[in-house]
Computed example of a mutant assay.
Amino acid sequence: MTTSPADRVAAETWFLRRGLPAVLRPGALVRRLWQRSAPALAAFAVFMANSILVTAVTGKHTINIEGQPTRTEWFVLALLLLVAPVAALAGWLVSRIASWRNRAGVAVVSVAVCAVGAVLGGPGPKVGGNLIYVGVIVAVILICTATGIGSILGWALDTTAHNLTLVGSLFVRALPIMLLTVLVFFNTYVWLMAAIISRARLWSALGFLSLIAVAFVIATTIDRVRPILTASAPDAPEAQDAVLADTPFVHLPAPAHRIPLSRIERVNVVFVLAMSQVLQLLIVALVTAFIFLVLGLILISPKLLAEWTRGNGSPDGTIFGMTLPIPESLIQTTLFLGALTFMYITARTTTDAEYRAEFVDPQVDSLRRRLDARDRYLADLRHA
């Protein structure tokens, strides 16, 4: 039985790393909250450090690049391209730190960097507003960690990173839709729409299309996991011991019957499996959108832009509050094509037996293993 605090911590960490926070009691989610938030805080600190550098180089808190970029502006553009990968790398490295004390130190340093970033950089010139912004983001990170959302997102990202080879095969499956979206890309009515429609209305349309795609994933995920969620008998103890050999639960007795899952646990199971699939499909859609963005930068000249948009196209565009030397209509068209790709590849993979065998079925098998561990963990808690 799990008797020592170290064993209990190991068991809780095992579930959190595998995206099942609903298995734990509410009090367990707030333990070591600061340390568990360290990866996200480190990633946020990278963005704030980048804002310090951008402000120091440009003397401005906002990025406004119009026309042909100068050498300094090219440097700023390079920073924009690198900041997200560097932040992801920082978060990943911190997540690999085993010592809770070291994690706490990283969290403190990260918040300190964010505070300095609010003074020397930040999204605006007012230090007070920047400090409020930093405080809100840090609070959101802590809340996500305390509610288990961070655990689910972390597991989904880790699973996606370990299955990047599948992204390549998914991209190959997306080639037919790329051939279709090429026709959309060269459709002048699409460019005219992109030049006239507001960004808020476009985001609403993209959100609507994305909701449809996610609904496909959730519906198929529920069908795949329903037999496991409703099963009354767990696997044989010998089979459980084999798959749980390297876990903190191998020495715990296996209950004779499956402990019924609560509603929140069922939601957790479906959400974590659906999230891992959505992230993979989203990567494919983003790569496709990036290809069209580069194609547009190569092909679109001021004369062609004026012709396709009937004089409504701006040579500069805005994204996330930054003005960049990219036509606004090209940004809008790229976002629209990315959403179409996301919808198509989602519908394609939900009925693709090969994709299910390569990615979904292994995840379902892993889920069965985690539920066996859950039964042992909860049975031990009840008899403790």
Rank of each mutant, 00 (worst) to 15 (best):
T2P: 08
R8S: 12
A10I: 04
A10H: 03
L16K: 12
R17C: 03
L20F: 01
P21E: 05
V23N: 09
L24A: 08
L24G: 12
R25D: 15
R25H: 14
V30D: 07
R32T: 00
L33A: 07
P39G: 13
F47Y: 14
A56W: 15
A56R: 04
A56M: 12
Q68F: 05
Q68I: 07
L79M: 11
L82Q: 03
V83L: 01
V86P: 12
A88D: 11
N102C: 09
S110Y: 02
C114A: 09
V116M: 08
A118N: 06
G122M: 11
G124H: 10
P125W: 03
K126Y: 14
I132K: 01
L142Q: 10
A146S: 11
W155R: 12
A156T: 06
L157K: 00
N163P: 00
T165P: 01
S169P: 02
F171D: 07
V172R: 09
L175H: 03
L179K: 05
T188Q: 14
T188E: 15
I197L: 05
L202G: 03
A205N: 09
F208H: 00
L209Y: 10
I212F: 06
A215L: 15
T220C: 09
T220R: 14
T221C: 10
T221M: 15
D223K: 02
A231C: 02
A233H: 12
V243F: 06
L244S: 03
A245P: 01
P248S: 01
P253C: 08
P255S: 11
I259T: 15
E265G: 00
V269H: 00
M275R: 00
V287S: 08
T288K: 02
F290T: 13
L293S: 12
S301V: 13
L305A: 10
A306E: 15
T309E: 03
G311H: 08
N312R: 04
G313C: 01
S314P: 04
S314H: 07
D316T: 08
G317K: 06
T323Q: 02
L324N: 13
P327I: 03
E328V: 00
L335W: 12
L335R: 07
L337C: 06
F342M: 13
M343I: 14
M343W: 13
I345H: 07
I345F: 08
I345Q: 07
D352G: 08
E354F: 02
R368Q: 13
R368P: 10
R369I: 12
R370K: 11
R374A: 11
